[in-house]
Amino acid sequence: MASLNITNVEKSFGHTHILKGINMDIQDGEFIILVGPSGCGKSTLMNCIAGLEDVTGGQICIEDHDITGVLPKDRDIAMVFQSYALYPNMNVRKNISFALEIRKLPKAEIEREVERVAKLLQIEHLLDRKPGQLSGGQRQRVAMGRALARHPKIYLFDEPLSNLDAKLRVEMRTEIKKLHQRLGTTIVYVTHDQIEAMTLADRIAVMKDGHIQQFGTPQEVYDNPANRFVAGFMGSPSMNFIDTELVNHEGQVCVKLLVMDQLHYLPTPSSERGLLERVGQKVVLGIRPEQITHVIPHYASNPSTFIVKAKIDVIEPTGPDTLVLVKMNEQEVNCRVEPHEAGKPGETMSLMINMSKTVFFDPITGERL
């Protein structure tokens, strides 16, 4: 296990600037996830940590030792790739032991290590099979086993589950989380799947265009997004963004919300005191679908909740809950309700809006107000 410090790291390919001053301090034993859309630079950053790409500028340190110019084989890092990268002509036992044999470890020690890893990943019965005889999930376990057998300081996972089907992806996600809890290793994990990021990470680095937009715990990133990009990227379905105006109504800073030709003035949270200077200006109201739901009597009396009547445009059952699409300020808004409370398209239903969890963004820059 080891800490990892990334300071002002930049990477360019010719005139194309990919990483633009990346700074991260990763603690010993942390599970860090780099998440973002394709092309944001997360895999390039991973390759720079592994030494597969040279950095253009900045510094990478493991346990305060500068490894920026160190060869990949001397960094004591193990990497698990999206493509598994197994040797097809070797059986599972040989795939796991190969790197240990190159290091000329004693045969008895290699055998003990293979057995330990196989038991940890529950692949003892697969040791004599070749990769072509394995399922995708089994191959991924073998790839993980090969990395675990080395006892490196840091593990890097580059989209390891993206080739698996949805059900297997969920199962492997759980296995990786259990593995981290058992071993307490430092892991840096790349994914474009924000659900994967939320469920696995101790902290998440949300990336866009070579910059880290926000670096925090899953709950911090979800509840207090730094900007509109982070708010929209994290969460499924995405946060609702409603164009509105701040007004002073009956001594309170409120947003104007038009629903079914009825104009409502909803007070902003007391924690958003900085909005006072924005009165009379356009803003973007951000609110998660779960904060707009059916009327729950014991919550309805809360001073932060408000009830409006809206016409249902579309319903989307998901099993545990139902998404209801309505219009507010002439924009589509997703609401999350219990299945038995959802009406039918064309019907009117009462919705309870919780304003305590709302956030506000500048309509031009997208930055959090």
Rank of each mutant, 00 (worst) to 15 (best):
I312W: 05
H264I: 00
T174N: 08
A205W: 07
L276T: 14
T365A: 10
N89R: 12
G346V: 04
P160K: 09
V190Y: 11
T348H: 14
E290D: 03
T322R: 02
I242M: 14
L257H: 04
P320Q: 09
V117D: 02
F98E: 08
D64H: 12
E124T: 15
F233E: 02
Y265D: 06
H151K: 08
F233K: 14
V188R: 01
N89M: 13
T186W: 09
K94N: 10
K104Y: 08
H180M: 09
D74R: 14
D223L: 15
D28W: 03
V259G: 00
I307C: 14
R182N: 15
A2L: 11
T199Y: 00
P106Y: 04
P267Q: 11
R288M: 04
E316N: 09
V230Q: 11
I242Y: 08
V333F: 09
V255H: 06
P106S: 06
G41D: 07
M172C: 01
P131V: 15
I102N: 07
R173Y: 00
T365K: 12
A231C: 15
Q82Y: 02
R182C: 08
R336E: 12
I26D: 10
S38G: 12
G14M: 00
K327L: 10
F306Y: 15
V333N: 05
V55N: 07
V206Q: 04
V314P: 01
D128W: 09
A99M: 10
P218A: 14
L34I: 01
G184Y: 00
I353A: 15
G286R: 10
P37G: 12
V308G: 11
N227P: 00
F157P: 03
R228N: 11
E53R: 08
P225F: 14
A205C: 10
I18T: 13
P106V: 01
L325K: 09
V333Y: 11
I18E: 04
P88L: 00
V114T: 12
D321F: 13
F157M: 11
I315N: 05
I96F: 08
L276Y: 11
G14W: 05
N248Y: 10
F233N: 07
I96A: 02
R150Q: 07
I96E: 02
